[in-house]
Nucleic acid binder design. Structure first.
Lengths: 157, 157
DNA sequence: ATAAAACTAGACCGATTCGGTCCTGTATAG
DNA sequence: CTATACAGGACCGAATCGGTCTAGTTTTAT
């Protein structure tokens, strides 16, 4: 349902790879080998992640990529936004005149905002280090203090 | 980024319409007029919502649709799943033999599960009545007891 | 200096999915 | 029995996605 796209998944995998082995610069060729992805795709993704200032690159021989920040300071929301682009919150087609000029608040826009903000709020809380070490997730709690299941114990469909 | 698809949005709007005016059965033609959507699309969506047991239908003249449960007992997760289909959690292409038979846990699958469960956990908490009356959202709190912003006060990006 | 390694940028295309429409049934009230 | 409204498909154009390729630039080792 809430598809993230394969490329976004690959991007998260690459960021996780870099986060885990942060000893030196990782080259695109190297990451392609570790992640079993074609080099062209890896290069494309690293490029996009670089343009969003999530990575820092060093050129030339002995070059490579490194995380711009610590893994626990990079949220998956940023990674997703870097690859899929910022979410189009203003999707209300304002060019079709007269249809959306209702006096009441637009219900579509309201729904989108509520749901998008809910998803954003959660994705902001999940960081790269959570993906690298899935056991140390900081649990969310609802209004009654109960833990909101994140990894397991939720119904699967 | 985390696109929900226009049809899913329309479905949420329709469900909200039905939830708000739950006095009698709402006909597809009626809902199409209120939501300003083409009748064909509305019929298609109502059909899918019906097959997921979120609506109850009555045929014949004087027929129509009605919510199967109370608005606060229908989560937006169910509505989304009804229209977009259940999320493909088992997307790991097992047909490409040998590539995914690594001894370590598959990082892609792990990432997907973590993120999907996070999103599911939140969408399960938002109900139709929250969409109908956006002011009464029950706030989520993180591990430190602070309120997780859902509607406002989050950066818009 | 020079060549090799590695990043940078963008065009490009096939395949898949999405949004949307239409048509033919079937059931029910009057 | 007939008009109304739901039921369940098939169907198609368009937009997007996943993925590849080519050409160019920067840096370092020798």
């Amino acid at each position: 349902m809430v598809r993230l796209g394969k490329l976004t998944d690959y991007g998260l995998v690459l960021m996780t790879c870099i986060a885990r082995s942060r000893v030196a610069l990782r080259t695109a060729r190297d990451l392609a080998q570790e992640s079993r992805l074609p080099l062209s795709t890896v290069s494309k993704l690293l490029k996009e992640l670089l343009q969003s200032s999530l990575l820092v690159s060093h050129r030339g021989i002995k070059g490579g990529y490194i995380l711009a920040r610590d893994p626990h300071q990079i949220s998956v929301l940023e990674v997703i936004a870097a690859i899929e682009g910022p979410m189009a919150l203003t999707e209300c087609s304002t060019d079709i005149t007269g249809l959306c000029n209702l006096e009441s608040a637009c219900p579509i826009k309201s729904n989108q905002q509520i749901i998008n903000q809910a998803i954003r709020g959660v994705l902001e809380k999940v960081t790269l280090s959570d993906l690298a070490h899935p056991l140390e997730l900081t649990p969310l709690r609802d209004a009654k203090g109960r833990v909101v299941p994140i990894v397991a114990s939720g119904r699967i469909q």
